[in-house]
């Protein structure tokens, strides 16, 4: 059984996505690696797919490893960072 999850977009992922969100279908017990694969299949732009490989996924409180279960409704994708 699948479920829908909202992925919040930041940085370069906002390019071409004015609402800064994507909805992706994933299996009920999907892990972050499954979400990454589902997003790769969804993204049409080659640059975005390349950026996806270097990006992390996170909740509002922590960055997740690829083997962690995807949280309930919303997750953020974080491309490589460069503050300051």
């Amino acid at each position: 059984m699948n479920r829908a999850i909202t992925v919040r977009l930041f940085g370069a992922f906002r390019q071409g996505n004015p609402d800064s969100r994507l909805t992706v279908e994933i299996p009920e017990q999907a892990r972050v690696a499954d979400l990454r694969a589902a997003m790769e299949a969804t993204l049409r732009d080659a640059n975005a797919r390349s950026l996806l490989k270097a990006s992390a996924f996170a909740t509002d409180s922590a960055v997740l490893d690829d083997d962690e279960i995807v949280p309930d409704r919303e997750i953020s994708i974080l491309p490589p960072v460069c503050g300051g």
Binding site: F10, V81, G84
Partner: peptide
């Protein structure tokens, strides 16, 4: 600079803009 989820987009004199490549947070 290497851990905070912050991204910068530079705007140039010629009107172009570019997101700066940064440090990957992905650990696996």
């Amino acid at each position: 600079k290497v851990r905070a989820p912050i991204w910068k987009q530079e705007h140039y004199v010629d009107g172009d803009s570019e997101w700066i490549k940064g440090h990957a947070l992905r650990s696996s």
